[in-house]
Nucleic acid binder design. Structure first.
Length: 822
DNA sequence: CCGATT
DNA sequence: AACGGCTAATCGG
């Protein structure tokens, strides 16, 4: 050991330590998988003071002389450098104040206000390690080259500890196949939710992406499975788990809701035995902290990913499932479900009985870890790519919302445009911003009816391409240099102007993202799905799209650093302009415009040929600026539009149905209503038979009436959006929750209420009970409600389009179902 | 029956 | 802790 070295490594995590100075620590691995800690003490904390340029000398002199004495030391600036920067496009004189320790910033910022010519202070709210990643442009999992000295430091369980002289980006190569460990715990829960103060952890399962599988438990049973390991007690279980983590030494740890359940639970149980999990590469303990209402669990140097958080924040808009529990998500993403036969709520009973029952729980637990690692295998390429585009740590990015992803992406790139990072808005700004609204997209009134040969077009990435084409940016709006800038269509009688001379910060970045994505798509077209690069490149393309599409929303987001309501309003104004223009053009060409929404246009060909439509779109595109393009989206043999916006169904040539907005896609409708609607749509659009559709409804009604429908099919999902006390109007789901609460069930805001309307007296709310209560008390669903308030309304809308009124439909059904509606 | 709430 | 547009059931006076 010892001596100068050049070391190439891939960072996985970052933090800093501070004693006399601050030292950045990069935790990572060499290509061969040797663990590395790289220490960089050359990076100096700083912030900016914006001042009146006329007072520059006086200001520098004043700041230079600031001294704050504390018990241990004297805090003062290390150096001051004058910069000409921009703050949201406006030129400013900024003094960069270098300090010794990151915590000095929050102390000095108070004294700095007295500076002559003081205007503002910025970048005080960027934490030190984030600052480092932004300034250095280092990306996680991407190769770095470090010059430095290998030092002996027993504090770290790493193969190499290097004190860096310099670190630079190597050739942008990405770390392949990190060792990932997934785990899941089962706890004793005799009264519903387990109580970490009393109820022990019963077993822990582990599954990795390299084949290691294990379940540890402390109650023996007749066992033939090789992955089961018995220990003597809960304490031994916790110790053994900790031992395995240390031995397997994973590069990433993943759990499902592990931030808010598994890790806090393990932590509290371990505390009881005065046991700690010293898993950090620096031998530090597993650390739990709060972020708003959520907990997060951190292991220094070993990124812990809570894949549930990632799915909920980033993936949810693309998922169909209404709940994000492991079963539903795995079912949709992997086509695989949790093990049958074990109900989460019954684990205590299974445990107490033991034997065969316990064996089932062990299998169940094993499967949970396996599903978690499989989800991770599927989603890790996306997390990895997003991490690199956003430019922050894996730990942070995997927990970010769309707004945060955009924010740190912009922060990373601001300096290249000489832009300072604006401060986070203070609370009072946020509340005024929340109350401000602006006009959104245009939705064309549909022509109700059934149509054939429908062509759908849409603008490729409408909002991103508008931002680029019209240079929409907080840095270019109301510029001083252009008398004749890009003028938006009128917005509430006014028009906003954007600079034509200088390309804005955000449009430049977005232009770059769009071009990068197009290049990737070109490559993807050429390579095979099995190609090693395919997964990475398609994840990259998806990650870029995600960021690009979220930028518009970020402009209108109340907590945004680059908030610009005028920008958001301008984008939608241009959007309305373009889609209306396309509608006009289509009409001029003699097409029958059926519908349009935001960025899409639906026309029916009638007696026209497809070539005429191609000519039309060609002409449209000839006249569109820059990156904007109207694309062919699809051709549909038949489609139905009801007398409402955002609700239609289309059938393609392969017999697939695409349904938008109708009950079928809504979670707040029962499965029976949705399935019936789907079957009716198929009968009408694919088979072309209303007769068949009527038969389907008749059959459903009969089955409902006979009590032959499962509870699952009559359950309705509605989210509890606030505390029960705070509801003014008591809807069915709230009413069900209130009744269940009296029986000891607890409810949190954000929780999904699954309820069933049962037979009995009173209003619909009075008759609504949560699914568990219905099962426990053997209540029966109310067929009248499901027929009249669920199934019939869902299909009546469709028949109305065919010219069949509600009464006529009921008549048709009645003739088939003698004497039912009496 | 109708506006407010969800 | 990303935007607005939109429909529709149900409550509650």
């Amino acid at each position: 050991m010892g001596g100068k070295t050049i070391l190439e490594f891939y960072p996985f995590d970052i933090d800093y330590i501070a004693d006399k100075t601050a030292t950045i620590r990069l935790f990572g691995y060499t290509k061969e998988g040797k663990s590395v800690v790289v220490l960089d003490d050359s990076f100096i904390p700083y912030f900016y003071v914006i001042i009146n340029p006329k007072k520059k000398e006086k200001a520098v002199e004043f700041i230079k002389n600031i001294e704050v004495k504390t018990e241990e030391r004297t805090i003062k600036p290390l150096g001051i450098h004058v910069f000409e920067k921009k703050l949201i496009g406006n030129p400013v004189t900024a003094l960069r104040v270098d300090v010794q320790l990151p915590t000095d910033i929050s102390i000095l910022k108070e004294y700095i206000k007295e500076t002559p010519g003081y205007l503002d202070r910025v970048e005080i709210d960027v934490s030190f390690y984030k600052r480092y990643l932004i300034d250095k442009k280092f990306q996680m999992l991407t190769r770095l080259r470090c010059n430095g000295e290998i030092i002996e430091d027993k504090k770290y369980k790493a193969d190499y500890v290097v004190l860096a002289d310099s670190i630079e980006e190597a050739e942008g190569e990405v770390y392949e196949n990190p060792r990932i460990l997934a785990f899941d715990i089962e706890t004793y829960n005799p009264i519903g939710n387990p109580r970490p103060s009393k109820d022990p952890v019963l077993m822990i399962s582990i599954a990795t992406n390299y084949g290691f599988e294990k379940v540890i438990t402390w109650k023996r049973f007749e066992n033939s499975k090789k992955y089961v390991e018995f220990v003597e007690s809960e304490l031994d279980l916790l110790k053994r788990f900790s031992e395995i983590i240390e031995k397997e030494n994973p590069q990433i740890i993943v759990g499902y809701n592990s931030d808010n359940f598994d890790f806090p639970y393990l932590h509290e149980r371990a505390k009881k035995y005065k046991l700690s999990f010293n898993w950090g590469i620096d031998r530090s303990k597993l650390r739990l902290s709060r972020r708003g209402i959520n907990k997060v669990a951190k292991i220094k140097g070993v990124p812990h990913i809570d894949i549930y958080t990632f799915i909920k924040n980033i993936l949810s808009p693309t998922l169909k499932t209404e709940v994000y529990d492991l079963n539903s998500v795995a079912s949709e993403l992997l086509g695989e479900e949790k093990l049958d036969g074990v109900d989460w709520t019954n684990i205590a009973k299974f445990w107490d009985v033991g034997g065969e029952n316990l064996s089932k729980v062990v299998d169940y637990s094993m499967k949970d870890s396996i599903l978690t690692i499989k989800l991770m295998n599927k989603l890790f390429p996306l997390i990895s790519e997003l991490t690199r585009i956003v430019g922050q740590s894996i730990f942070d990015v995997s927990r970010m919302t769309y707004g945060q992803c955009v924010e740190w992406f912009l922060a990373k790139n601001a300096a290249s445009f000489n832009e300072l990072i604006p401060p986070k808005p203070i609370g009072s700004y946020v509340s005024t911003r929340i109350n401000k609204t602006y006009e959104g997209a245009y939705v064309h009134e549909p022509k109700p009816g059934i149509f054939e040969n429908i062509v759908v077009y849409d603008f490729r990435s409408l909002y991103p391409s508008i931002i680029v084409s019209h240079n929409i940016c907080p840095t270019t709006i109301f510029c001083d240099c252009c008398k004749d800038g890009y003028k938006t269509p009128p917005i509430g009688g006014k028009s906003f102007s954007f600079c034509k001379k200088h390309k804005g910060f955000v449009p430049s970045l977005l232009d770059d993202l769009i071009n990068r994505r197009m290049r990737i798509k070109e490559i993807l077209k050429k390579i095979h799905k099995d190609d090693v690069d395919y997964t990475i490149l398609s994840a990259r393309s998806y990650a870029i799209k995600t960021i690009a599409n979220a930028i518009y929303g970020y402009f209108g987001f109340a907590r945004s650093r680059w908030y610009c309501l005028e920008c958001a309003a301008s984008i939608t104004a241009w959007g309305r302009y373009y889609i209306k223009n396309v509608i006009e053009q289509a009409k001029k060409y003699g097409f029958n415009v059926l519908y349009a929404d935001t960025d899409s246009l639906f026309i029916s060909l009638d007696n026209k040929k497809l070539e005429e439509a191609e000519k039309f779109i060609e002409n449209i595109n000839k006249n569109l600026p820059g990156v904007m393009e109207l694309e062919f989206q699809g051709f549909y043999t038949r489609g139905i539009f009801v007398a409402a916006k955002k609700r239609y169904a289309l059938a393609d040539m392969n017999g697939n149905l695409i349904i938008k907005g109708l009950e079928w896609v809504r979670r707040d409708w029962s499965k029976i209503a949705k399935d019936t609607q789907m079957a009716v749509l198929k009968a009408i659009l694919i088979d072309g038979s209303t007769e068949k559709a009527v038969d389907i409804i008749k059959d459903t009604i009969k089955r409902l009436k006979d009590g032959n429908i499962s509870l699952e099919e009559v359950t309705i999902f509605t989210q509890l959006t606030r505390k029960i006390e705070n509801y003014e109007s008591i809807g069915p789901h709230v009413s069900a929750a209130i009744k269940a609460r009296e029986k000891g069930y607890t409810f949190e805001p954000g929780q999904m209420i699954k309820y069933v309307v049962v037979k009995g007296e009173g209003s619909i709310s009075d008759k609504s009970y949560i699914l568990e209560e219905v099962k426990d008390n053997k209540l029966e669903y109310d067929p009248e409600y499901y027929i009249n308030n669920q199934v019939l309304p869902a299909v009546e809308r469709i028949f109305e389009v065919l010219g069949v009124t509600k009464d006529e439909l009921r008549g048709k059904i009645q003739t088939k179902l003698e004497g039912f509606f009496r």
